[in-house]
Simulated scan of single mutants.
Amino acid sequence: MKIQKAGYAALLASTLLLIGGCDQAEKAAQQMLSKTAEAAKQAIDDTHKAAEQALNDATGGRLIEQQPPAEENKETSHTI
């Protein structure tokens, strides 16, 4: 019986160690994903800034006149 109890204790201890290792791996993966998401956000922000600068350079700093939304276009076409 003592051997059987020792076997159960060893199995329980190894299971706890395995679960602890899984928690560590999960935390590391979450940190990696967080860093990757932040890097992707920074790349998108940098690309947006570069696109705005390129548009500003191309238009000479003038704003491009925007067309009204489609709903407003429908209303004006019905009055004609």
Score class of each variant (00 low, 15 high):
residue 1 M to A: 08
residue 2 K to F: 11
residue 2 K to P: 06
residue 2 K to D: 10
residue 3 I to E: 12
residue 5 K to A: 07
residue 5 K to W: 10
residue 5 K to I: 04
residue 6 A to L: 13
residue 7 G to V: 09
residue 7 G to N: 14
residue 8 Y to W: 11
residue 8 Y to H: 08
residue 9 A to L: 04
residue 9 A to R: 03
residue 10 A to P: 00
residue 10 A to D: 05
residue 11 L to D: 09
residue 12 L to K: 15
residue 12 L to T: 12
residue 12 L to R: 15
residue 14 S to H: 08
residue 14 S to P: 00
residue 15 T to F: 15
residue 19 I to P: 00
residue 19 I to K: 06
residue 20 G to P: 00
residue 20 G to Q: 01
residue 21 G to E: 01
residue 22 C to R: 09
residue 22 C to K: 12
residue 22 C to Q: 12
residue 22 C to N: 10
residue 23 D to P: 02
residue 23 D to I: 07
residue 23 D to G: 06
residue 24 Q to S: 14
residue 24 Q to I: 15
residue 24 Q to G: 11
residue 25 A to W: 03
residue 25 A to L: 07
residue 25 A to H: 07
residue 25 A to C: 01
residue 27 K to H: 09
residue 27 K to S: 07
residue 27 K to L: 06
residue 29 A to S: 13
residue 29 A to G: 03
residue 30 Q to K: 06
residue 30 Q to G: 01
residue 30 Q to L: 10
residue 30 Q to R: 14
residue 31 Q to H: 09
residue 32 M to D: 14
residue 33 L to A: 12
residue 34 S to I: 02
residue 34 S to Q: 13
residue 34 S to R: 14
residue 34 S to C: 07
residue 34 S to G: 11
residue 35 K to A: 11
residue 36 T to Q: 13
residue 37 A to D: 07
residue 37 A to K: 12
residue 37 A to F: 11
residue 38 E to C: 05
residue 39 A to V: 06
residue 39 A to Y: 11
residue 39 A to L: 07
residue 39 A to D: 14
residue 40 A to K: 14
residue 40 A to N: 12
residue 41 K to I: 03
residue 41 K to D: 11
residue 41 K to S: 09
residue 42 Q to D: 13
residue 43 A to P: 04
residue 43 A to S: 10
residue 45 D to Q: 14
residue 46 D to Y: 09
residue 46 D to M: 10
residue 47 T to G: 03
residue 47 T to N: 12
residue 47 T to P: 02
residue 49 K to W: 01
residue 49 K to C: 01
residue 51 A to K: 04
residue 51 A to E: 00
residue 51 A to L: 09
residue 51 A to I: 02
residue 52 E to G: 05
residue 55 L to Q: 05
residue 57 D to N: 11
residue 57 D to E: 03
residue 57 D to F: 02
residue 58 A to P: 01
residue 58 A to G: 03
residue 60 G to E: 00
residue 60 G to P: 01
residue 62 R to Q: 13
residue 62 R to T: 01
residue 63 L to F: 06
residue 63 L to N: 14
residue 64 I to R: 10
residue 64 I to K: 07
residue 65 E to T: 09
residue 65 E to Y: 12
residue 65 E to V: 07
residue 65 E to G: 05
residue 66 Q to H: 15
residue 66 Q to L: 11
residue 67 Q to C: 04
residue 67 Q to M: 07
residue 67 Q to I: 06
residue 68 P to Q: 01
residue 68 P to N: 00
residue 68 P to H: 00
residue 69 P to L: 05
residue 70 A to W: 15
residue 71 E to Q: 12
residue 71 E to I: 04
residue 71 E to K: 14
residue 71 E to M: 10
residue 71 E to A: 12
residue 72 E to A: 13
residue 72 E to K: 11
residue 74 K to F: 13
residue 74 K to M: 09
residue 74 K to S: 05
residue 75 E to L: 13
residue 75 E to N: 05
residue 76 T to D: 06
residue 76 T to C: 04
residue 76 T to V: 14
residue 76 T to N: 06
residue 77 S to A: 11
residue 77 S to K: 13
residue 80 I to T: 03
residue 80 I to A: 10
